[in-house]
């Protein structure tokens, strides 16, 4: 299972780029809610998609602290590394 933050960042960016609602360029510094104009539900649903790919569950209390794509990749890498 993927545990490298860079590779996970790539996966996040590619997945978001495939979403027709997301039109702007995405980097590790992109702020998920503000820059992508996703509501809280859309963010949770997006994370759910990624969770299945990496076989992890991101607790909602952790998700609340995450702002950028890079933060999310770091959190996912850490959870995947614990497996």
């Amino acid at each position: 299972m993927e545990t490298d933050p860079q590779a996970i960042t790539r996966l996040l960016i590619d997945t978001l780029a495939a979403n027709p609602r997301v039109t702007r360029e995405i980097t590790a510094e992109t702020v998920i809610v503000d820059d992508l104009a996703l509501d809280s539900l859309a963010v949770m649903n997006f994370v759910m998609e990624i969770e299945d790919r990496l076989d992890v569950s991101v607790p909602l209390d952790r998700l609340a602290e995450i702002r950028t794509i890079g933060d999310l990749a770091g959190c996912l890498a850490e959870l995947a590394g614990q497996r």
């Binding site: 949770m44 759910m48 076989d55 992890v56 569950s57 607790p59 909602l60 209390d61 609340a64 497996r83």
Partner: peptide, 30 residues
């Protein structure tokens, strides 16, 4: 229920709506 989960001190995990298999996967991960 979401607001309650924020008031609790617990780790909070969300599973797919009405999906027992997804709940099962997430329980196994824990």
């Amino acid at each position: 229920i979401y607001d309650a989960s924020r008031l609790s001190q617990a780790q909070v995990i969300r599973f797919r709506h009405n999906d027992p298999d997804d709940l099962d996967r997430r329980l196994r991960r824990i």
